[in-house]
Design a protein around this nucleic acid. Sequence first.
DNA 1: GCCATTTTTTTACAAATGTTAAAAAATGAG
DNA 2: CTCATTTTTTAACATTTGTAAAAAAATGGC
Lengths: 188, 188
Amino acid sequence: MDELIKKINSIYPLKPHSLKLLLGEMHKIALPKNKVLVEAGHIGRSAYFIQKGIARAYCEGRDNQITFWFGLEGDFVFSYNSYINGQPGYESIELLENSTLYEIKDEALQRLFLENIDLANWGRKLAELELIKLEERYISRLFKSASECYAELLKNSPNLIQRIQLGYIASYLGVTQVTLSRIRAEIK
Amino acid sequence: MDELIKKINSIYPLKPHSLKLLLGEMHKIALPKNKVLVEAGHIGRSAYFIQKGIARAYCEGRDNQITFWFGLEGDFVFSYNSYINGQPGYESIELLENSTLYEIKDEALQRLFLENIDLANWGRKLAELELIKLEERYISRLFKSASECYAELLKNSPNLIQRIQLGYIASYLGVTQVTLSRIRAEIK
DNA sequence: GCCATTTTTTTACAAATGTTAAAAAATGAG
DNA sequence: CTCATTTTTTAACATTTGTAAAAAAATGGC
């Protein structure tokens, strides 16, 4: 609970009353490895906060899956397309470990945004911060080779590489698993 | 002015009073080709709406520039990093044509967000929609070859390719200009 | 601990992209 | 229109990455 509150306030500091409103809608749940939180083609009706565990978001290609996001402890999870447009998303999100999450129904969240200006600005800040993170990742990929991206990942999120199988990481980096193996062989 | 109002309301429909507050802070300006709206390393103090013209956002590499965004008529322009964190951004934004813009001071925008819940939700929606657009672009790049991305650009924004020099488009697609030339030669 | 299954690495060859340099085409100022 | 400059295309070769298949290593259930 403490981690959740700290995270919420780090996005945008909330007045105690607003924080209470938000926390009142968040419920702790435990879900097993491989559980699909959001399924492509369906509307995601909840957002989540990861207290313990890992999630990955991916899209189905013709003959492959492409992972484009990992969520770790302290991250929020939502199907952007569902969350934002209320439409079926193109991505699926699944848990890669047995996990503990806080869930909030999308409906409740949207209602809070319309009722409380403090929370509306919190929601704005949340989207803005996600936007920056994604933009940095996007630009980073334009500048750097797969090899440099891997080195960076190894430096910034070493536990991510230990906890997630390399096939997923390869597609996250935009290369095949064979190429990632070659990169790893070079570094050693 | 009409385009601006239409665009604003398409993001999130505002009450007349809120719309008036927002428009009251936006001022029409004409700026020449090559004008730098935002300079890397500086804090961007304004956001813009493009009524007529083109802008591009880019980062400086060691020995090259990488363009990662184009703005056309109807787009909003801001240095995310400045806009969101109030810190110097890593990107520059410049005009590629003589342009007509509406400018709003960042300071005014932030004040409106804190005062008016309608506008706070508008700002939230704006960030969310930008987030989705970027995510779609990000995923698209993971799935598609440079050749497919170019074909898509040609289909969705043909005037963009006519108005912008190919070197910028090549870096936007994440390839060298030589590769883009090869792609274009194949398609013909 | 053992075996079946999954994941990762390695290999050989094919395809795509980068690099450098030069030629061709387009643009813009006078 | 002409000339200098910029932009785009083409060429030859080097490097990187992909593909397919097999080997090696790791994992998980019993």
